[in-house]
């Protein structure tokens, strides 16, 4: 459970480290790009949190270097350069996720959870299963028990994303980015409305809820409450 934070702003770094330590992670902080690069080569870290602007070696070059050296540790970019093109640049440069400053700690935590336990997605069967809910990626059929659930394409993508990260919290922003391709904050309750519709469809005729709201953070799908 080791995480390396490469960030030159001491306040942000300490804020992240404190938060993650409370969550049970072991956190190392490095403020210098070059030293951070060497430290990251170690590969004992589960996740790297890398700022875009660093002294001596910028974050993007750092990650590119790591990828060239075949270090595959998941990287979460953290940056004040939040604009869409910067994000694309970061992801193309080898980052696995991108979070722009300022960010909520819950958002960071959720994204790290998703990154660190990301198993190489190899679906032996093309099916995702949570409890008695089953989603077939090939036939695009969703069933709960024996009951077929009819979903709109967007609802299907929403459920798919939740189920791929079953048991973990996904935030509103993560859903907007991955399900809707929205890289901005809509002024209406897009996520809430669609989650509530999806819930209704899934729960119809069943007592056990599958999609749980995590207060102040996001949503989680799991068979247990």
């Amino acid at each position: 459970m080791k995480i390396l934070v490469i960030e030159d702003d001491t306040e942000t770094a300490t804020y992240i480290a404190n938060g993650l330590t409370e969550e049970g992670y072991v956190v190392d902080i490095q403020a210098d790009g070059k030293v951070g690069f060497v430290q990251a080569m170690d590969e004992s870290y589960e996740v790297l949190i890398v700022d875009r602007m660093l002294p001596n070696l910028d974050g993007l070059s750092l990650v590119k270097g790591l990828r060239t050296a075949n270090v595959q540790t998941p990287v979460l970019f953290l940056s004040a350069l939040g604009e869409i093109n910067h994000r694309v640049e970061g992801l193309q440069g080898g980052g696995d996720d991108y979070l722009s400053k300022p960010f909520a700690f819950s958002e960071l935590k959720a994204r790290i959870e998703v990154l660190r336990r990301r198993p190489p997605i190899q679906l032996i069967e093309s099916r995702l299963r949570v409890g008695d809910l089953e989603l077939d990626l090939m036939t695009r059929i969703v069933k709960r028990g024996e009951i077929l659930i009819d979903l709109q394409p967007r609802e299907f993508r929403l459920l798919e994303y939740l189920m791929r990260h079953a048991g973990r919290v996904v935030t509103r922003t993560m859903l907007l980015e991955h399900v809707w391709d929205f890289y901005f904050d809509p002024r209406t309750s897009v996520v809430e409305t669609h989650i509530s519709r999806l819930r209704t469809k899934i729960n119809r005729g069943f007592n056990q809820p599958l999609i749980h709201t995590v207060r102040g953070t996001g949503y989680r799908i799991s068979a247990d409450a």
Partner: peptide, 26 residues
Amino acid sequence: GVYRQGFGAIFLSELFETISETYGPI
């Protein structure tokens, strides 16, 4: 104008469909 570098083809009809599908329920 920095975004101009990333210009490409947009499937406009699909984009509108997605928005319509997303905002209908809202």
